[in-house]
Design a protein around this nucleic acid. Structure first.
Lengths: 188, 188
DNA sequence: TTCTAGATTGGACAGGTGTCCAGTTATGTG
DNA sequence: CACATAACTGGACACCTGTCCAATCTAGAA
């Protein structure tokens, strides 16, 4: 689970980057992703804006990195359930709960992952790979690739709809329960 | 199929708004959504930027409006196919083809629909409703709501993934074929 | 202690976003 | 034609984004 933002870190820089990400998370929770500025985060972290920009390429990079770290907090969770349906629902429930627990980050990350910034591009491959891995593990080894893709896309779609405000992150878990059951029906 | 942006139109304004949207579509194709500025679109339409802003609230509003108009161009297409799978695949194939035919607009719209702008909020409900309508018509009247939602979410997820560059709009049709078949297996 | 090199800084920059406003122009009506 | 009003404008504004740079600070090694 990599920690490196834009550059390798000596111990002094490691301290600075941790302060910066902690400040970013606080500022995000406090003012939301649109009102947040890198300058406000830098101020909160007690570094200059130019220093902040040696660690994050952009606001979107900050959000993507914060999300990646947030995902990493339960990366070792093993999907639980008597069958594939239950295990996939365990995955979607947990992810939905994580998003609902941090609505400001959830709202920030969907647009952020669409950014053309190269540092974001790297992170979205990782994040996408992490989602794929979780669904794949829940499905088991013999799963049909089309089914796996359907699940990953449905989850991505739920992210987009929640990001648009069409669905709440709180409702996401339940709605995805029904969707997962429908997709897996006939594929048990 | 509504034509109204922010305000009702007299005939002079109707001319201006058409010029503005035409200029927006050209500028978008030419320079892409990030390099496009409302000032450049205003210049191309031969109106002042302040005038442009009486019609569009933001860049994102412009993109959402252009996409809504683009969708409207084949709104009356009736899904074709011998069964629900074929009809849904007809819908996804056509939508994917529309997106692939206008890659600059496709790339612009996913982030645009995530904007907090109130004029965008209105349009995303309409666009979402249009997608739901198309899938619902293809599925037929007795369709399970969870299946309908799975399809709409999978399509939304494909939009997000294509917007992130993880999938091309060109590949979207084929990939969704397999996903649609997997979702509908057991629900024929 | 001195020296070096990495880390950081204050401040300026260019470019963009969307808002605002007094003044001007264009159009329709009597 | 004169008048009223809607539509439009040029220009300024505040705020933001991310980049750049000479100068300063800091930590570690000799």
């Amino acid at each position: 689970m990599s920690n490196a933002p834009r550059q390798e870190l000596g111990s002094r820089r490691a301290g600075t980057v941790e302060r910066l990400f902690a400040a970013g998370a606080e500022e995000l929770d406090e003012v939301g992703h649109e009102a947040l500025t890198i300058r406000s985060v830098a101020g909160r972290a007690r570094v200059s804006p130019a220093t902040a920009y040696t660690y994050v390429a952009s606001k979107n990079h900050l959000f993507a990195e914060l999300f990646w770290r947030y995902l990493a907090e339960d990366a070792d969770h093993e999907p639980r359930g008597a069958d594939a349906v239950a295990r996939v629902q365990d995955v979607t429930r947990r992810l939905a709960a994580r998003l609902a627990a941090s609505p400001a980050l959830a709202a920030a990350v969907t647009p952020a992952l669409l950014s053309s910034d190269a540092d974001v591009a790297r992170l979205r491959l990782r994040i996408g790979g992490e989602f794929l891995d979780r669904f794949s593990r829940a499905l088991g080894e013999d799963a049909d690739p089309a089914v796996l893709e359907a699940l990953v896309l449905a989850f991505s779609g739920a992210l987009l709809q929640a990001g648009m405000g069409v669905m709440t992150y709180t409702d996401m878990g339940e709605r995805l329960d029904a969707v997962v059951a429908a997709i897996l029906e006939g594929h048990a």
